[in-house]
Simulated scan of single mutants.
Amino acid sequence: MIAEIGLGASVVAAGLWSGLLLTVTTILHPLFGRQDAAGFATEMHRFLPIARRSPTNYILVATLLLAPPVALVGLGIQQAFGAAFVLTATGLVATVAGPLLISRRLAEPNYALILGWNPQHPPDDWQVARDRWYRHNWMRAALTWVAFALFLAASYAHLG
């Protein structure tokens, strides 16, 4: 029962985070990509403070970090080398690498840089930070989509 709860919560959290990143990469990137320097800076000054501190982010990332270990404990030693265990553990690695490490170590410093700009006079090299924002979002998205697929596969392997 514990394994099913952990796997179910992992699938739901990874699915919701995947959808969030799908929105950012396929809707917001093109929208912000059409902006000039001042437009991009102004939009990011509106967007980032809300996006950075959204309770949704905290809840989903916490669930992505807590639910897979719950599933692993539920799967236990007997299934430690089984497909469900390996898939879940690999999904956990992907979520730690994506939503946690890339966000904390790469994206957050870039956000601080962007928010430090005067929106009416962004730096001449503003596109470097914009391109980093794109890359970080795509890296997190890819890792989260992989984690989602792994958690789904683990659920199937465990229940199937």
Rank of each mutant, 00 (worst) to 15 (best):
S10L: 00
S155C: 09
T63M: 01
E43R: 14
G82I: 02
R140L: 11
A141P: 06
H29K: 13
V61H: 08
L22P: 11
G6M: 01
V128L: 13
P30D: 03
A83H: 05
L72G: 01
V73P: 09
G91R: 04
P122L: 00
V12D: 07
G33M: 05
Y58S: 09
R46Y: 12
I50F: 10
W17M: 15
Q78W: 10
Y111T: 07
I2R: 10
R130V: 06
S54R: 08
V73E: 11
H158A: 10
L22I: 13
L21G: 10
A107W: 05
Q120W: 11
A13Q: 03
L66K: 05
A107S: 14
A157R: 01
L87G: 00
A89Q: 01
A14T: 07
P68Y: 00
Y134H: 15
S54Q: 07
P122C: 02
S10D: 05
I27V: 15
E108Y: 08
L28G: 10
A62Y: 06
L28T: 12
L7M: 07
A13S: 12
P68A: 03
Q79L: 15
L106G: 11
V73A: 13
R105C: 14
G82D: 11
A147N: 06
L72N: 06
W126E: 08
V12K: 05
T42K: 14
G15I: 05
Y58G: 14
L66I: 07
I5G: 08
P123G: 05
Y134N: 15
W145P: 11
A84G: 04
W17R: 15
E4Q: 14
A142V: 15
R130H: 14
Y156M: 12
A38F: 08
Y58Q: 09
D124Y: 10
A147W: 04
L150Q: 03
W133Y: 14
A153Q: 00
W117V: 03
D131V: 12
Q35A: 15
A129F: 06
A157G: 03
G91K: 00
T88S: 11
T26Y: 12
G33T: 00
R53Q: 06
L101Q: 07
N110F: 01
S18L: 04
F47D: 12
Q79M: 14
A83V: 04
V11T: 02
P109Y: 02
G116C: 00
T42I: 13
P30S: 07
L65N: 01
A38T: 13
I50H: 12
M139N: 13
S155W: 03
V61Q: 06
D124R: 14
P55W: 02
R53I: 06
A41Q: 03
S103L: 06
I5N: 08
A84W: 01
I102D: 11
A37G: 09
Q79F: 12
S54K: 08
A9D: 03
R140N: 12
L31F: 12
R53K: 08
L106V: 11
T90W: 02
F148E: 03
A107E: 13
A157W: 04
A83Q: 09
L28F: 13
A62G: 09
H121T: 15
L92W: 11
T95D: 10
W117Q: 05
W133E: 11
G15A: 02
G116I: 00
M1R: 13
S18K: 10
A149P: 02
A71R: 01
P68T: 02
M44D: 05
R105E: 14
L64N: 09
R132A: 14
A154K: 03
D125F: 09
Y58A: 11
F148I: 00
P119A: 05
L60E: 01
G82C: 08
